[in-house]
């Protein structure tokens, strides 16, 4: 073997070693076995509880703050305090006008951009110890109560699938979309 051929094969080996050292090399997977089963309407309905800001997904039913006060006292107050004051769980009221201060307080009233989120979260996850136990009327009512505590709607304002997404939250324009910033 000539000197140049030895040099060449040494160089080739070095390139191969470098390639191995940088990253695992594997072909991309582009094809699966296609084993997914058709999801049934009942299967989807059980899970599909997400509510969009447009109100899409809101169920039938209605409620106002008067009815919601009773729900709140029975199901929410032990964690969220009297009239949403908080402790041990998050405060639900207050903080309006504080976001640009050194003592910003973020609550449903001062921070949340959409009322639909309050309905969605309450229905999916509250009360913490018994989620999905409230009726749709109860969720509408307690949502109305929390919004009323924050001075966003009146005590007799009825929330339903049409009126809830129309509620304008005070901090609706307080967010800057960074989803395209990478």
């Amino acid at each position: 073997m000539s000197i140049s051929r030895i040099a060449l094969s040494t160089a080739f080996a070095a390139v191969m070693l470098a390639a191995c050292a940088t990253e695992r090399i594997e072909p991309p997977i582009s094809k699966g076995p296609g084993l997914g089963q058709p999801a049934t309407a009942a299967e989807i309905a059980l899970l599909d509880i997400g509510i969009a800001p447009s109100g899409a997904g809101l169920p039938p039913g209605s409620g106002d703050a008067r009815a919601g006060a009773k729900v709140y006292a029975a199901k929410c107050q032990s964690c969220h305090g009297d009239k949403g004051a908080g402790k041990p769980a998050d405060a639900l009221v207050g903080g309006t006008g504080t976001l640009a201060s050194s003592n910003a307080v973020r609550t449903v009233g001062s921070y949340w951009p959409y009322a639909t989120t309050l309905f969605d979260y309450t229905r999916r996850a509250m009360p913490l110890t018994a989620p999905r136990s409230l009726s749709n009327d109860e969720v509408y009512a307690v949502t109305a109560y929390v919004l009323h505590l924050n001075g966003i709607i009146s005590e007799d304002h009825t929330l339903n699938a049409q009126t809830l997404p129309a509620v304008k939250m005070p901090n609706r324009d307080g967010f800057v979309d960074y989803s395209k910033v990478r």
Binding site: G50, I51, A52, Y111, P113, Y114, T116, T117
Partner: peptide
């Protein structure tokens, strides 16, 4: 986006 509790509050 759905603006869930964990991506807003």
């Amino acid at each position: 986006p759905m603006h869930t509790k964990d991506e807003t509050s």
